[in-house]
């Protein structure tokens, strides 16, 4: 790993200005996505701005119609939080299924969302639930946030501060994990909530997280597993790796969608 400048400011504002000044700066929180990439030489930021000393970003709050999750909340915190388990159990289940215990102890919601790995779980939850991503300067709807594999609407010096999830009437999560990495081969969240009926898929497509309009329409008329069982997605844009080829991935999307609706 190449060496780099390292900063651990005490506030979001200081983090933003350090990012602005850094040459090829990157934010690091738990580092569960970024550090493996740096070790492999696939990322070589000139400056790392750690949020580890920033306080106030690790709370989970009930805002009535929404649950607000601070950007530095770890997956373990989200999985264990009573408010989340009671009000959006699908979100707690999703967090509990990320990686392994040690990854969940370090990895954060803000990091997962900002990284937008095509096989990460949080982007699917954000899109399905119609979440809002709050940053140091604005609020971005999930619909406008995820712009493709490892690509988001965030500016270079922008820092996520929280993610707000509207509480759905019902929502379910199902994932077929890669047996080694636990990243999604195909992961689906199906939700019926303030943002409407939504089905969001991660892990499957080379373009990153996506919605399946045909499944959403079928579920809007009848929110039953059978409604999605007959809806298939095209294998054309699907990822292919050791775990699954494109046709199998496309098949898994339908199976996981059915299971997600069962869980809801």
């Amino acid at each position: 790993m190449e060496d780099f400048q390292y900063h651990a400011p005490g506030s979001v504002d200081a983090a933003v200005s350090l990012l602005r000044d850094a040459e090829d700066g990157k934010v690091v929180a738990g580092g569960m996505s970024l550090l493996p990439l740096m070790k492999l030489g696939l990322a070589a930021p000139g400056g790392l701005v750690s949020l580890g000393k920033v306080s106030g970003l690790d709370g989970i709050a009930d805002r009535g119609s929404e649950i607000e999750v601070g950007a530095l909340c770890t997956h373990a915190q989200v999985a264990a939080a009573e408010i989340v388990r009671e009000r959006i159990p699908a979100l707690a289940a999703m967090a509990e299924g990320i990686g392994d215990a040690q990854v969940r102890n370090r990895g954060t919601i803000g990091g997962s969302v900002a990284h937008n790995d095509p096989a990460a779980d949080y982007p699917a939850a954000c899109l399905a639930l119609g979440a809002t991503i709050a940053t140091d300067r604005r609020e971005i709807a999930a619909d406008d946030f995820f712009l493709g594999m490892f690509f988001t609407a965030l500016e270079e010096d922008e820092v996520i501060t929280a993610v707000r999830f509207p509480v759905p009437t019902r929502a379910g999560w199902a994932k077929f994990p890669n047996p080694a990495s636990k990243y999604a081969v195909a992961g689906v969240m199906a939700a019926d909530g303030p943002a409407g009926v939504r089905v969001a898929v991660t892990g499957a497509s080379g373009d990153g997280v996506f919605r399946v309009a045909e499944m959403e329409a079928a579920l809007a008329s009848s929110f039953e597993p059978a409604s999605v069982a007959g809806v298939s997605v095209s294998a054309e844009a699907m990822l292919s790796d050791d775990a699954a080829g494109p046709e199998y991935r496309a098949h898994l999307v339908t199976v996981m969608a059915k299971r997600a609706v069962e869980e809801a």
Binding site: Y6, V28, G31, L35, A101, V103, N105, R106
Partner: peptide
């Protein structure tokens, strides 16, 4: 809390 020390910087 348990962490994987190969995936954490000492400075963290």
């Amino acid at each position: 809390v348990s962490v994987k020390s190969c995936t954490m910087l000492a400075v963290q």
